[in-house]
Design a protein around this nucleic acid. Structure first.
Ligand SMILES: Cc1cn([C@H]2C[C@H](O)[C@@H](COP(=O)(O)OP(=O)(O)OP(=O)(O)O)O2)c(=O)[nH]c1=O
Ligand SMILES: [Mg+2]
Length: 682
DNA sequence: CGCCAATACCC
DNA sequence: GGGTAT
DNA sequence: GGCG
């Protein structure tokens, strides 16, 4: 269909609209930013010492962004979602949570003493905190999770101590016994079926490629792998190349790209654009989307064990700081979190902290800690922190979705030392209470196949809704797209939650879509509890869902966007978080503000930068156009795990000429969409 | 010493 | 407007 | 915490 009109790369925006008057400060600031960015990028990878041995890291000068990582390959196959049908319903459920409010006042501290909850435990086993052994308190909710939605219980006043006993509800649940949790091995087809399936709402769906697509190859991208082989040989010298565009003038590149882009349009419309490979294997293999591709990815991947263990410790430190209140802690969290990613992506194995000198993001403090870890096997700081009462309690409380550092601190000061106590004390609001019921389940990662099953069930309800609306059964997927994003789209073999992007493409009413979809899901009998209130105009939803035949409750995030924002929303919702921040930072340096709604000109308010978007966006029908607009090399979802996309800002900038080119928005390929299997669509 | 992304929903 | 989330 |  339409050709995505090429979007001309934007040039940096020097100053506001005012033409000249301004080279002044804004301009300077702009330049400064850019310069800074450049540096970051450039040195990001220049790693000074290389490991003694061979591994030569990257060549010095290239610019890349911060983390390196190279994965190449692709992303993963679009899933297919065929609608299943289903219906068992439990009627009611839906009930909105009206009363969402605050917890009672109860101030007085709860009893106290009891040994620390769980968390406190030192480092030993990282992650897996055995957490509180004891489950949540009783009164909230009946063990039987099954019951539909929300039973949003109000927190009764009761301050009563926290006793707690018995296991937590859900998990206990018997039924599923034998259904074993989804094996990853096998794709959706089979096991998924069980749930709904029953009757076909939508007939046509082909059995998606079910067989192999997602599940199987899951493995792929995943992690870290440092340097990868398959990175291109060409420049190969250095492992990580993240090259952004070639060194040459960005602008030129940009143009080049435009032309490239043009071609696809000419060629087979939709979906196919990326067929034209030739470039490198990473792209282009879409069509196949099969095992082979994954295999090739797998090969290269090899992570350095030492780096991984260092990264895990840094992650623990990051998590610890995240739960602490007080200014600065959040940035420590940020710094450690970023450092962990950087270490994971290093192209060489760390055996001595001195190798880290020069690596951007790993300053003296962190290097020292890493050195200590390497030498002694532990980080005294972490041990100390993690063992402290305050940090331990805070970390434990923050495991509840909705409880952050401030709330945890408040609770702790009131004497609360565990999730159970917080619940028992009636100090949590509705959202936190709901999440607290399932906090243990929510700590678990979700196998890719289960994510697939959840998305399919959402799609099934969506289809029923559309059918009822009169949408022809054969057009369901074209009218409304439902795409699994987040780590799933990046090809991870497991996810922390299920992120589904929904987009209505016929001019139909999209504003009320989310609301109606949730009602439909409830009507269809899905076990789901809301964390956000569902209103007629909600565009963002957070909830907790559990499929029949699966053991745990899982976090579900749904977002609905109008068609013209789809590419931006897809880019955003695919992440990763650090990748988004990196890309947005880059856009900002160019004078723009990138969000899930679009790319707009940054407007400064006040002294520094409070940027506010103005209204003009660069129309983008597919993600690639956004990269192009910023002059960045396109990255497949699976290559967006690490930071950066980046490229040094372009140097040339001429004053004005910043207006976004209005491209005719025609809708073309919807990137990856659950509903369409690779190349059909349209 | 300031910045470290930009946005949505709850209270 | 802060807090928590994405 | 890291960085300009
Ligand atoms: C948390 C977070 C997410 N996002 C975007 C990018 C994420 O991929 C997307 C979904 O958020 P998440 O579901 O939190 O992240 P994820 O799907 O990448 O990883 P996980 O397996 O843990 O679920 O939202 C941000 O832009 N900023 C953030 O701070
Ligand atoms: Mg996710």
């Amino acid at each position: 269909m339409g050709t995505p009109s090429p979007t001309a790369p934007l040039s940096p925006i020097p100053h506001s609209s005012s033409d000249d008057g301004s080279l002044s400060e804004q301009f300077d600031a702009f330049i400064a930013d850019r310069a800074q960015l450049c540096h970051e990028i450039i040195q990001a990878l220049s790693i000074p010492h290389q490991p003694p041995e061979s591994t030569q890291p990257l060549s010095a000068h290239q610019q890349h962004i911060e983390t390196t990582q190279a994965l190449s390959t692709l992303h993963q196959p679009p899933e297919s979602m065929q609608p299943l049908s289903t219906h068992h319903q439990h009627p009611e459920s839906t009930q909105p949570l009206s009363s969402r409010n605050q917890p009672p006042e109860s101030t007085q501290p709860l009893s106290s003493h009891h040994q620390h909850p769980e968390s406190t435990q030192p480092l030993s086993a990282h992650h897996q905190p055995p957490e509180s052994t004891q489950p949540l308190s009783s009164r909230n909710q009946p063990p039987e999770s099954t019951q539909p939605l929300s039973s949003r219980n109000q927190p009764p006043e009761s301050t009563q101590p926290l006793s707690s006993h018995h296991q937590h509800p859900e998990s206990t649940q018997p039924l599923s016994a034998h259904h074993q949790p989804p094996e990853s091995t096998q794709p959706l087809s089979s096991r998924n079926q069980p749930p709904e399936s029953t009757q076909p709402l939508s007939s046509h769906h082909q059995p998606p490629e079910s067989t192999q697509p997602l599940s199987s190859h899951n493995q792929p991208p995943e992690s870290t792998q440092p340097l990868s082989s398959h990175n291109q040989p060409p420049e190969s010298t250095q492992p990580l190349s993240i090259h952004r565009q070639p060194p040459e003038s960005p602008r030129r590149d940009a143009k080049r790209k435009l032309s490239d882009r043009a071609s696809p349009s000419a060629s087979p419309p939709a979906a196919s654009p990326r067929l034209a490979p030739l470039a490198d294997l990473s792209r282009g293999q879409w069509a196949s989307t099969h095992a082979a591709k994954w295999t090739c990815q797998t090969a290269p991947r090899k992570a350095f064990a030492a780096n991984e263990s260092v990264a895990l410790e840094l992650d623990r430190l990051a998590e610890t700081y995240k739960a602490l209140h007080g200014r600065g802690q959040q940035w420590k969290h940020y710094a450690y979190s970023k450092a962990a990613k950087i270490v994971r992506a290093l192209p060489f194995e760390v055996t001595d902290a001195s190798q880290l000198r020069g690596v951007r993001g790993l300053g003296e403090s962190i290097r020292t800690k890493v050195g200590e870890l390497l030498r002694t096997g532990r980080m005294s700081r972490l041990e100390r922190l993690a063992a402290s009462e305050a940090a331990g309690v805070a970390a434990a409380l923050c495991k509840v979705h909705g409880v952050g550092a401030a709330k945890a601190d408040e609770l702790r000061r009131m004497g609360v030392r565990s999730v159970d106590e917080a619940v028992a004390a009636g100090l949590l609001n509705q959202q936190q209470l709901t999440a607290a019921k399932h906090w243990r389940d929510l700590q678990e990662r979700i196998p890719r196949d289960e994510v697939t099953a959840i998305v399919r069930s959402v799609r099934a309800s969506l289809d029923r809704l559309l059918l009822a609306e009169g949408v022809p059964r054969t057009h369901l997927e074209q009218v409304v797209e439902a795409t699994a994003c987040g780590s799933y789209r990046r090809g991870k073999s497991s996810s922390g939650d299920v992120d589904v992007l929904i987009c209505r493409r016929d001019g139909g009413d999209e504003k009320s879509l989310l609301h109606r979809l949730l009602e439909q899901m409830s009507a269809d009998g899905l076990t789901i509890e809301h964390l956000t209130e569902v209103t007629a105009t909600s565009r963002s939803y957070h909830g907790i869902i559990k499929l029949p035949d699966y053991e745990r409750f899982r976090r579900l995030d749904l977002k609905v966007y109008p068609s013209d924002q789809y590419a931006y929303a897809l880019l955003y919702f695919t992440g990763s978080d650090h990748f988004n921040r990196s890309m947005r930072h880059y856009a900002k340096a160019l004078g723009y503000s990138l969000s899930d709604h679009g790319l707009v000109k940054a407007v400064k308010a006040g002294a520094n930068n409070v940027v506010r978007g103005t209204l003009n966006l660069v129309p983008a029908v597919e993600e690639r156009q956004i990269f192009d607009a910023l002059g960045l090399e396109y990255k497949e979802p699976s290559d967006r795990n690490c930071e950066a996309t980046t490229q040094p800002p372009r140097l040339t900038l001429q004053s004005d000429e910043c207006e976004p080119v209005l491209a005719a928005p025609d809708r073309t390929t919807p990137a990856i969409n659950l509903s369409q299997t690779t190349d059909d669509l349209e």
